[in-house]
Design a protein around this nucleic acid. Structure first.
Ligand code: DGT
Ligand code: MG
Ligand code: MG
Ligand code: ZN
Length: 574
DNA sequence: GCCGTTTTCGGCCCGACTGTTTTCAGTCG
C-alpha cells in the first residue's frame, strides 16, 4: 500500500507551498487530501485503478491526477520543482517552536540560512534582530526553540501520558477554584499518540486558576500566559495547554478543545450554512448566543446528534451523523474479558490465581491465558508437558472460581515457513489459539504476508495477535499486505487482535476500521506480562471505538460461554 | 485546490497570545 507515501508527499508539498507563501486554501487542500489518504481503509492504488479517487472528499481532478502520478512514477513533478526552489531542510525549521513559514522564508531569502547551525549562529551574532518583523526576543525564542528541537521528543503514547493528565486534574480540582474540568484534545479522542495535554476548565475566578497552573511543581516553563489561554512546558518535556472559560460556554469550549481541528472546521462550516457562527464560547445567530452550555446543544444547533470524541476526526462521521447513520460504538463497560494475558507458565510474572483476583477487581468475567509456544525460548515458551499441567490448573481454578473464568489459550509462534510452533494434535487440545509473528521481521512483504495467511487458514487457529508488529516509537510495522490479510481473515471467519498494550495498539484505528468494514471479528487483548498491564484493556476498546466498532464487532463483549462456543464454531466449520 | 438542492466563481473556521509594531502579522490552539 502506497497510501503513506502519497500522504507524505502531499504534506511536504503543503509545507513547501507555505514557505513559498502560496494560497493558504490551496495548502489546506493538500493537507486535507493527505489526511484523507492516511485514513483510508483501502489501498489508494485500488481506488485509482477503479477510477474512484475523485469520489474522495477534497480530491478533485487535479489531486487525483497527482495521486496517479505518484503511484506511477514514485514522485510528483510539482514536488520535485518545489524542492529546487526551497531546500527540503527548511521543513525542519518549521518544527522549531516560534518559527513558522513566514519567518523561515525571510531567514532563507534574506540571510540564506539553510541549516540549524547557521540559524543558531545568526541568532548569537544578532543578525536576526535586524530583519524586519524580527527583534531580540525573536532571537531568544529561536535559540530556545532550537534546544527543544534538538531534544526532539516527539508524540508520546496515550497510555504514557494519561496518568500524568489525571494527576494534574486532581491537583487543580483540589487546589484551585475550578468548577468543571476535563481533559480535551487528542487525549479525549483517545488517539494512540498525543503531542500535548489539553485541559479545559470553567471557573468564576479564572485568574486564580491560571496562576495556580503556572505554579504547579510539575511546570518547567511558562510558554504563554493569558486569562483564558495558558501554555506551559512540564518537567517531563510535554506541553500543556489550558483554557478557562465561563460555565455557560462549557459545551462549546469542550467541543472546540476536543477537536479534531478538521472535525471542528466541518461543524463550523455547517453552522455557516445555517447562518450561524460557532466558536469556543458558543453558537451565535448574529449577536445572540443560542447554545453553548453542553456539547449536545452545540451539535444540535447544526442538526447533528452527539458525536463520540473518539470518532471526531472528519473521517466520515459528519456525513454519517447527518444521515442518522452514526455507529453505536462499543461501550467500555461492555468488554467482559481480556483475550491475551501471559502467566508464569511463560514469560508472564503473574500466577493464574493473581490474574483471577485482578480480573475480578476490574470487573472482568473471563481471561484467556495465552502463553508463548514451545520454540520461543527467550520468552519462556511453554513445552508440551507443561501445557497439560496448565490445562489442569485452569480447569481446577474454573471449578472454584465462579466470577472469573480462565480460558486455556496459547500465543503460538508462526515459524518462518508459516507453520505453527505446536503440532496439530496439541493445538487441538488448546481452547484458544492466537497465532503471531515474533521472528523473521526482515523477511519480504510476500513472505511475512504468506506466513500470516497460512496461520489464518490453519483450521485450529482462531486469531492473529498484533498483526502488524509495530511498537510505537520503537519498531515500524513489518512489511505486510494488509488488504490480503483482511481478505483471508474475512473469508475464514478468523479474528484479528486489537493488542491493547500501550506501545502496540495493533491493529491500529484505521486497520481496525478496515477490518470492521469487512465484518472481521475483532478481539482485544492486553498482552499483559505484568499483572497491572491488564489495566490497559480500555486502550484497546478505545482503538475499537476509533475504528467505528459496535458491540457485535468485538468478541470481548461475549460472555464466557458465548466466547467458548464461538471458539468451537470457528473450528467446526472445517 | 475543492466545491455547489440558492452558486461553476468566490468563497474557504475562528480566536488567543506574543512581539514588533504605531495598528497588526505571525504563530499557535
Ligand atoms: N477550530 C479550530 N480548532 C482548533 C485548531 N487547532 C486546534 N484546535 C482545537 C482542536 C484540537 O483538538 C484542540 C487541541 O489542539 P492540539 O494542537 O493540542 O491538537 P490535538 O490535541 O487534537 O492533537 P495533538 O495535541 O497533536 O495530539 O484545539 C484550529 O485551527 N481551529
Ligand atoms: Mg493536543
Ligand atoms: Mg494543544
Ligand atoms: Zn503476547
Amino acid at each position: 500500500m502506497k497510501n503513506k507515501e502519497v500522504a507524505e508527499i502531499f504534506n511536504k508539498v503543503a509545507a513547501l507551498l507555505e514557505i513559498k507563501g502560496d494560497n493558504p486554501y490551496r495548502i489546506r487542500a493538500y493537507q486535507k487530501a493527505a489526511q484523507t489518504i492516511e485514513a483510508l481503509t483501502t489501498d489508494v492504488e485500488e481506488l485509482a485503478k477503479q477510477g474512484k479517487l475523485e469520489k474522495l472528499p477534497g480530491i478533485g481532478p487535479d489531486l487525483a491526477g497527482k495521486i496517479k502520478e505518484i503511484l506511477k512514477t514514485g514522485t510528483l513533478s510539482l514536488y520535485e520543482e518545489l524542492k529546487k526552489e526551497i531546500p527540503l531542510v527548511l521543513l525542519d525549521f518549521l518544527e522549531i517552536p516560534s518559527l513558522g513559514p513566514k519567518k523561515v522564508k525571510v531567514l532563507y531569502e534574506k540571510l540564506g540560512i539553510t541549516n540549524i547551525e547557521e540559524l543558531e549562529k545568526a541568532c548569537k551574532e544578532h543578525k536576526i534582530a535586524k530583519l524586519p518583523g524580527f527583534g531580540w526576543k525573536t532571537e531568544e525564542n529561536i535559540l530556545k526553540g532550537i534546544v527543544l528541537f534538538r531534544e526532539k521528543r516527539g508524540r508520546r503514547p496515550l497510555g504514557e501520558v494519561l496518568p500524568l493528565a489525571e494527576e494534574i486534574m486532581e491537583i487543580l480540582k483540589r487546589e484551585s477554584p475550578v468548577e468543571n474540568i476535563a481533559v480535551a484534545g487528542s487525549i479525549r479522542r483517545k488517539k494512540e499518540t498525543v503531542k500535548d495535554i489539553d485541559v479545559l476548565i470553567t471557573s468564576i475566578q479564572p485568574e486564580k486558576v491560571m496562576k495556580k497552573v503556572t505554579e504547579l511543581f510539575l511546570v518547567e516553563e511558562v510558554i504563554a500566559f493569558g486569562e483564558t489561554k495558558t501554555s506551559v512546558r512540564l518537567k517531563t518535556g510535554i506541553q500543556m495547554d489550558i483554557r478557562v472559560v465561563e460555565p455557560d460556554s462549557w459545551g462549546a469550549a469542550l467541543a472546540y478543545f476536543t477537536g479534531s481541528k478538521a472535525h471542528n472546521i466541518r461543524v463550523r462550516e455547517l453552522a455557516l450554512e445555517k447562518g450561524l457562527k460557532i466558536n469556543e464560547y458558543g453558537v451565535f445567530r448574529g449577536e445572540e448566543k443560542i447554545a453553548g452550555k453542553t456539547e449536545e446543544e452545540v451539535y444540535a444547533s447544526v442538526g447533528l446528534p452527539f458525536i463520540p470524541p473518539e470518532i471526531r476526526e472528519d473521517w466520515g462521521e459528519i456525513e454519517a451523523a447527518l444521515q442518522g447513520k452514526l455507529p453505536k460504538l462499543v461501550e467500555y463497560n461492555e468488554i467482559l474479558g481480556d483475550a491475551h494475558v501471559h502467566s508464569k507458565y511463560s514469560d508472564g510474572t503473574a500466577s493464574l490465581e493473581e490474574i483471577i483476583t485482578k480480573a475480578e477487581k476490574l470487573g472482568l468475567s473471563w481471561v484467556a491465558i495465552c502463553d508463548h509456544s514451545q520454540g520461543l525460548k527467550v520468552a519462556g515458551g511453554v513445552p508440551v508437558e507443561d501445557l497439560f499441567k496448565k490445562k489442569k490448573h485452569i480447569e481446577e481454578l474454573n471449578k472454584r472460581s465462579s466470577k472469573v473464568k480462565l480460558i486455556f489459550g496459547a500465543e503460538v509462534d508462526i515459524l518462518s515457513d508459516g507453520t505453527l510452533d505446536y503440532p496439530d494434535e496439541i493445538l487441538a487440545e488448546i481452547d484458544f489459539v492466537i497465532a503471531a509473528i515474533h521472528t523473521g521481521f526482515q523477511q519480504t512483504e510476500e513472505q511475512i504476508t504468506n506466513r500470516i495467511i497460512s496461520a489464518l487458514k490453519h483450521p485450529l487457529v482462531h486469531a492473529i495477535a498484533h498483526p502488524t508488529g509495530r511498537v510505537i516509537g520503537e519498531r515500524e510495522p513489518y512489511a505486510i499486505n494488509m488488504p490480503k490479510i483482511l481478505e483471508v481473515a474475512a473469508q475464514y471467519g478468523k479474528a484479528l487482535e486489537i493488542n491493547a498494550y500501550y506501545k502496540r495498539l495493533d491493529l491500529n484505528d484505521v486497520n481496525t476500521r478496515a477490518a470492521k468494514e469487512k465484518s472481521i471479528p475483532l478481539i482485544i487483548g492486553t498482552d499483559a506480562h505484568f499483572i497491572d498491564q491488564i489495566e490497559y484493556l480500555p486502550l484497546g476498546t478505545a482503538v475499537a471505538r476509533r475504528g467505528w466498532c459496535e458491540k457485535k464487532d468485538i468478541l470481548n463483549t461475549l460472555t464466557y460461554e458465548e466466547f467458548m462456543s464461538w471458539l468451537k464454531k470457528v473450528r467446526n466449520q472445517f
